Amino acid sequence: MGILPVIDESTAELTEIFKDLHAHPEIGFTEVRTSAIVAEKLREYGVDEVHEGIGKTGVVGIIKGKGGGNRRVGLRADMDALPIHEETGLPYASQNAGVMHACGHDSHTTMLLGAAKHLAETRDFDGTAVLIFQPAEEGLGGARGMLADGLFEKFPCDEVYGMHNWPNGEPKKFGIVKGAAMAGASFFDIHIKGKGSHGARPEDSRDPLVIAASLTGDLQTIVSRNMSPLDACVVSVTQLHAGSAYNVVPDTATLAGTIRYFKDEVCEKAERRMKELCDGFALAYGVEITCETRNIFNVLQNDADLSDAYMEAAGDIVGTDNVMLRDEPVMGSEDFADMLRTIPGAYCTLGHGGNVPVHNPKFQIDPGILPVGASIMARIVEKRLPLAG
């Protein structure tokens, strides 16, 4: 079958949309320009209903198929960018200083718009397609915001599908993991209140930097000495902030980072041990230490049967040789997991040219992925809502 005809004919348009979105990235919950373009395009394509302001800056489109069926399939794409200064040198590089589509959400938004154009023009399905353009995926709780705003109460879905680009240098390679596919994540902030002094008289201090450095090392024992080697877990300290002068021992220091896991009880144990270590360090050094943790992403669970359905739909577009069932999940996280906790569905990856990883200032999307992803998303609707006869 290959690329769907309507989408194939729209490749140039989709590429221009993508480049425009890439040049004008917006951080989560500020995607005002992006969501306005999405809503405008959906109306231009003849989508039956367009709802704006869902979860602050989210957009939902409704397309009814030729048949009168009651089943509803959701398609979701994220829209937000990251606080990264772009270094790609592309002619359509970010015009917003310090903000970049370094995760490819601009491509996800464009692909779902391509699917919308095809589905609205052909309507070769029996039921309803629900198009979900989500804000603030990058750790800001956009999925939870849309759910709290009644996403699936207002726009019910029987199943829902998402997609992420994969810069693996393997264009059109579709990959999926059944069951637990992506890790859950908690973020933590540790605040150490010590006693400052002149840098020449450290004996007068209770140095929070020394404490922070020692605590950073001991936090690594949570995984190596408290977790079963069969339970995947990551504890990463990613920030250490302290001091502002060469000759001053500071009063305070702050550590921050993330926990990644595939079982809720593993995360709970890691958070408990982190707080116990902080309490112990506070007692040992005679300082105050507070440890705050907060869940950001749930474990992403793909429904086994719907994963098979997604693979079948992808095979129609890229060929079965390019469809891969993967065995190993990844430690990265994705807030589409929150939608999958409410509605069964599946989340896949789609390979493209280039191998610079996401969240890198030199990351680039291969625009050739756009009609491929759009076709797969449209095809899963047609396959799951087939017309009779």
Rank of each mutant, 00 (worst) to 15 (best):
L4H: 08
L4S: 08
P5T: 09
P5Y: 10
I27V: 12
G28S: 10
F29N: 02
E31P: 05
R33K: 11
T34V: 05
I37W: 13
V38R: 10
E40T: 13
R43A: 15
R43K: 15
E49Q: 15
V50M: 08
H51G: 06
G53A: 09
I54P: 05
G55S: 03
G61Y: 01
R72P: 14
A77W: 08
D78H: 05
A81L: 02
I84C: 08
E86T: 08
E87P: 09
E87C: 06
P91T: 01
N96V: 15
G98Y: 11
S107C: 12
S107E: 02
M111P: 14
K117M: 07
G127D: 11
A129W: 03
V130P: 08
Q134S: 02
Q134I: 06
P135M: 08
P135C: 08
A136I: 02
E138V: 04
L140Y: 00
G142Q: 03
R144S: 08
R144N: 14
G145Y: 02
M146W: 04
A148C: 00
E153P: 04
K154S: 06
C157K: 11
D158F: 09
P167A: 01
K172G: 12
F174L: 10
G184S: 06
A185Q: 14
S186L: 13
F188V: 04
D189M: 14
G199Y: 15
P208W: 09
V210R: 05
V210A: 05
I211R: 05
G217F: 13
I222P: 10
S224G: 06
N226F: 11
M227G: 01
L230A: 14
V237S: 06
T238D: 07
A245P: 00
V248N: 00
L255N: 07
R260D: 03
D264H: 06
E271N: 11
R272F: 14
R273T: 12
D279S: 14
G280S: 15
G280N: 15
A282E: 07
L283W: 11
V287L: 09
E292M: 08
E292C: 06
T293N: 07
T293Q: 01
L300I: 03
Q301T: 15
N302H: 01
N302A: 01
Y310N: 01
M311L: 13
E312F: 06
A313T: 10
G315A: 13
N322S: 12
S333Y: 09
S333W: 13
Y347K: 07
C348P: 01
L350Y: 10
L350G: 01
N355V: 13
V356C: 00
V358N: 03
N360H: 07
P361I: 02
Q364M: 15
Q364P: 06
A378C: 05
R379P: 09
I380R: 12
I380A: 07
K383S: 12
L385Q: 12
L385P: 11
P386Y: 12
G389W: 12
